[in-house]
Simulated scan of single mutants.
Amino acid sequence: MMKSVLERIESIQKEIDYSGTAYVKSGEDILIKSYGYSNRGEKIMNEKDTRYGIASGSKLFTSIAIGQLVDKKIISFDMKLIDCLDCQLPFFDKNVTIHHLLTHTAGIPDYFDEAIMNDFEDLWIHTPMYRVRDLQDFLPLFQGRKMVSAPGEQFHYNNAGYIILGLIIEQASGLKFSNYIEQFILKKAGMLNSGYFELDALPEKTAMGYMQNQDGSYKTNIYSIPAKGGADGGIFVTAEDMASLWASLNNGELMSCETTKRLLKHQVHVEKDIYYGYAGYMQVSNDYVEKHILMGYDPGVNFRSVYYRGTGLTIIVLSNKNDGAYEILRGIEETIVD
């Protein structure tokens, strides 16, 4: 079967010029294949242990950290924001809870509303991206805005909510957000090659993100995203490390059994058979979660991953260009699942 999968990946890669690493684990069989350049200027190729940014795919790490703090009884999913965070948020509804923030139903203002904004780079016209390195640096982008809707009223994807969750993690743990993730999630899951890196100090084997200009040339995303990502996106992972996270999470190695089950349960209906839970999007049939879905998009970053609950099929597609991850993932699913 993996031969057919590889042939499908190769075909799609040639068609769309995919750049990145694709990982597939089906039963005992594992396939890892890389394409394109991690550094186009130096002609350094992407390899199986190359680290990639995964943008909003990073939200899963924030959710797990919240779950761990719930296990320690420092916070609870139903705790109100005003009771677990000392922060100036003058227009936020006092009934916003951690549950609302995790499920994008808090109704708070977002700093990048994907429903009405098209260009992430527009954020940095008045706020220099090189000064955005800590969670507090994101606050001026949204803390003075009014609520968009009442808490619990509707699902509306929200990045600012996860910045707030990151601040809760910092206050509850006494650690800087990235340090907490590295100590209590990355190490526990064996993700030794992953981390929150600054764009102007990337370690070796880290892919630079690229965007294509109209004339066909490429530019890096160093001026298009924060110098260091926050709790809503910003971690860099290898394909194998991401697979380790899926395994650790589903094996109950990161949280208690009860909290793990709650994290993996669907919570809010989005559309058709797609729901959102504390662990991202989920495809649900007859109240059973068939597939977990992670995705991330930033300028020069494209990420897709799925985990099938029944079979353990794990697919991870990392890209250091604007697109390509979905096409590769869908081709793999069509070959194995459909």
Rank of each mutant, 00 (worst) to 15 (best):
R8H: 09
G41P: 09
L294M: 11
L101K: 13
A55Q: 10
T62P: 09
A207Q: 01
L141W: 01
F112I: 12
D273F: 11
G20L: 07
Y297S: 10
G20P: 05
D134M: 09
P90N: 14
G107P: 10
I169D: 02
E271A: 12
N286T: 04
L85N: 00
L102F: 10
T206I: 12
P226F: 05
L186S: 05
N193G: 05
P109W: 04
V306F: 01
D200G: 08
N193F: 03
A207S: 11
K188N: 14
S244P: 04
G190H: 04
I54H: 01
Y307P: 02
M295K: 12
L294S: 03
M208G: 03
K219F: 13
M211T: 15
N320V: 11
I332Y: 05
V70M: 11
S26C: 02
T220M: 06
T335R: 05
T220R: 12
Q267V: 09
G229M: 04
F184N: 15
S194F: 11
Y276H: 14
Y218T: 06
M191D: 00
I169W: 06
R51Y: 08
L31N: 07
L85R: 02
A279R: 06
F138G: 01
K72V: 06
M45W: 06
A150D: 09
D119M: 06
Q212P: 01
V5I: 08
D119Q: 12
N251S: 13
I9T: 03
